[in-house]
């Protein structure tokens, strides 16, 4: 491979209606056990009747460039995959939960089989050459897009152009890679 990929997700809150199809699609694609989820929707209403605003946000692991889960993992189970994603090697995981305590976004859970688990940006799909994750594929409003920030295809630029971009908890210093368009 000539060029290193750097996957990120761009989430258009103007498009998102908070339907949660992303959550269901992920649960089936990744066989997330009952009672857990790898992605979720947060709805934030501000103001008082009748002056209100509402934002829906589909959230998941931020695949931080400076990920505290990776630096706090004692066994290298949590690791950078080299394509901008953070992955968990289940063979190395002891279930010590240091990564969960370290994550400012509470993106992880302990799988009933014992290992820490979270969104993988559908790494298996990326490896199979698909351009979508389960959530970006299903999203009825096309609010979710998986992009390669190192690509020259212009997709990320086109989505970001002219839009106000927000990242979650920038002061955590984690350099997250979920980009919300307001």
């Amino acid at each position: 491979m000539s060029r290193e990929r750097k996957y990120a997700m761009i989430i258009d809150t103007r498009r998102c209606v908070g339907c949660s199809a992303c959550v269901f699609a992920c649960k089936t694609e990744n066989q997330v056990p009952e009672g857990f989820c790898r992605d979720w929707v947060v709805s934030i209403t501000k103001g008082s009747f009748p002056n209100l605003s509402l934002v829906n946000r589909s959230e998941r692991c931020q695949h931080c460039e400076d990920a505290p889960c990776v630096s706090n993992c004692p066994t290298e189970a949590s690791h950078y995959q080299g394509d901008g994603t953070v992955q968990i090697d289940r063979d190395l995981c002891t279930g010590c939960k240091a990564c969960m305590a370290a994550c400012p976004y509470d993106a992880r859970y302990i799988h009933p089989d014992g290992f820490a688990d979270k969104c993988s940006f559908c790494s298996h799909r990326i490896k199979a050459g698909l351009a979508t994750t389960a959530c970006t594929q299903v999203c009825p409003t096309s609010a979710l897009k998986l992009v390669d920030l190192n690509s020259n295809d212009g997709q990320a630029e086109a989505l970001l152009r002219g839009r106000e971009v927000k990242i979650d908890k920038p002061h955590a210093g984690t350099k997250p890679k979920l980009l919300w368009l307001l």
Partner: peptide, 14 residues
């Protein structure tokens, strides 16, 4: 007023 609603399930972090 801020009303925050989430359908996150994971009881270990929520």
């Amino acid at each position: 007023m801020i009303e925050t609603v989430t359908n996150k399930l994971n009881p270990q972090v929520l």
